[in-house]
Design a binder for these strands. Structure first.
Lengths: 343, 343
DNA sequence: TTGAAAGCGCTAACAA
DNA sequence: TTGTTAGCGCTTTCAA
């Protein structure tokens, strides 16, 4: 039970060292009104001399902890790293710190992660692609300022930051059709979410795929493998699709991670990309840009999304109650993995 | 169950609902001695009825926050995800929660991350491959229980969990030599750390590379590109190495991430792997196993390391003061990216 | 076995 | 402008 170490410098150490009241020190560290320049200098000097840093947890007992929680499904998708970097960069200009926690693959684990954050008194929460139902998210928003990334529903109580997944998926499918493909297959993601399908990005991407196929008279060619947005998921999904006769000439994987798995499956099946089969992904992760992968993909600015999420969340922490929706417009980055279908 | 009236349920709500003292409730939630079974049941019933969850932050004011901080350099390396998963799995059997924070690429950012954790009263800290000097880590260990991953020094005040990087690097270089390679090059990592070279894994890997080369009479063939353990770093490093005449016939990248970049550079230079150049990595991330990458790599059990780190840290939180070192033995996973050199 | 009461380090009413 | 004084929600003596 022994905690190693000396006693930490507290606000009253600073107060007595500067020969002022504890309140005065508190005001200075909060930049509150009602402190003379002289007192401010004096307190600041004492703070520096003693190396004082306020204990966020104690501050939280009355006010804020200056901590925000970021719930990511997992940390295996490099796209999430982009979001985190954007968020971190934004928070650097503030007094807030972000802590990350894995939301996992099930609603139960995700809920536990959120509870852990709430129990630790974070000032606000950012959830990336949550599985929770709308109702659950509203509950969370009742407890803490909340910003949700990568979901499409409109909520009165939390902010949304998302990519226009419909536009993005359209870009991919139209691109493949323009190249002359007809047998275009899709790999989508499955989860245990009970959210409405239209709220979840993978459902939007797959529904858009089906819509655009239909609009081009290709309804009969629709082929969807329901798997996971992961390397293994993409691999499994692609194998499933390649078993079809006739074989698809193009695969649109709903995420780069899955596209990587699809590329692996094609390689294993001795099919060359793009000569035999074209492949496209979504997210434009940095792996897509590697010359030996050269994956055509949809770019959505993750850094920008992270930054926006941070900004919106702090606005909420400061008291904004009206919901804001921030949407990023995707663009298609064409690389070597897509070309005209074999003759 | 959400409280009507939206104020969070506190320990005294539970106490009055169960008609017992606050102390009694506290004892029950801490599993402390001195509560009759009857009282325990009564309190537990009240807790369930009200949906009470103790506020970790308030507990921390006197005791523990049941929170541990994990400092990762970044979240772009899938190997870190393995560590996190192992840690999370272990903590699931306890009352503790891990929060992740990015340590970044410089000592300054890393220190800020550690301070953020300390200020938020975590019960202990796990640092993965930190840049900090030994002295700095000792300081951290003085403030909080500390476990350091992927560093090799022996400390009296914190625990270490690491892979035997010397053995691992040896496996790779010996493997390449056995295949008949002589011009084996290496890509290593550069950072702003002032830690002793022998404490940092990338220095051990590169020093071992040089030693083994020397032992086989290949000292003249030593070629090291100092870059970064990242895709871009591997790409740049490989390009640098390929400019040499004669060209190396094998590249040992100190990490899979860098190996991926090297593969990309080779592809771009129209060199085939392994026919023209063999490539090996380190970490055996799941990407290495994809058939189209098929990267020979050194496996170190990240999940096991994460689990061990969690266990050791909690032991320290419980009071252990003597240092423990936990070492994982690496093994070589040979795949298609390495073969005999061209004739 | 129980519970009253004193803090933990801060913030925020309210006085001076 | 300053300082005094209650708490925030818990844990921990220490009596009863």
């Amino acid at each position: 039970m022994v905690t190693p170490g000396r006693r930490r410098v507290t606000i009253s150490d600073v107060a007595s060292h500067a020969q002022v009241s504890v309140t005065a020190v508190s005001k200075v560290i909060r930049n509150a009104y009602g402190v003379s320049p002289a007192m401010k200098d004096r307190v600041k000097a004492a703070i520096d001399e003693l190396g004082y840093r306020p204990q966020a947890v104690a501050r939280g007992m009355r006010g804020r902890t200056f901590t925000i929680g970021l719930v990511l499904p997992h940390i295996r998708n490099p796209f999430f790293a982009d979001i985190l970097d954007g968020l971190t960069a934004y928070l650097e200009t503030t007094d807030y710190q972000a802590f990350m926690i894995q939301g996992g693959a099930t609603r139960k684990v995700e809920q536990r992660a959120v509870d852990a954050l709430v129990d630790r008194q974070v000032d606000g929460i950012i959830m990336v692609a949550p599985l929770a139902s709308r109702a659950r998210l509203e509950e969370v928003a009742k407890e803490k300022p909340l910003v949700v990334l990568a979901r499409h529903e409109r909520s009165p109580h939390y902010d949304s930051v998302f990519d226009d997944d419909e536009a993005g998926a359209e870009l991919v499918v139209e691109h493949l059709i323009e190249l002359g493909h007809r047998r275009i297959a899709h790999i989508t993601h499955q989860d245990d979410s009970i959210a409405r399908p239209g709220d979840l990005l993978h459902n939007i991407r797959s529904a858009t795929y089906e819509r655009v196929m239909g609009e081009h008279g290709l309804a009969d060619e629709i082929a969807v493998a329901t798997s996971f947005y992961s390397e293994k998921g993409g691999y499994d999904g692609a194998r499933q699709l390649l078993d079809r006769t006739p074989r698809p000439t193009a695969i649109f994987a709903g995420a780069d991670q899955a596209a990587l798995g699809a590329l692996a499956a094609l390689h294993e099946a001795c099919l060359s990309v793009p000569a035999d089969v074209s492949v496209a992904g979504y997210d434009n992760t940095h792996l897509a840009a590697l010359p030996n992968i050269a994956l055509t993909s949809v770019d959505q600015d993750g850094g920008e999304m992270g930054r926006a999420a941070g900004k919106l969340l702090l606005e909420r922490v400061e008291g904004r109650m009206t919901p804001v929706r921030f949407s990023v417009t995707p663009s298609l980055v064409v690389r070597g993995s897509t070309a005209a279908p074999p003759a």
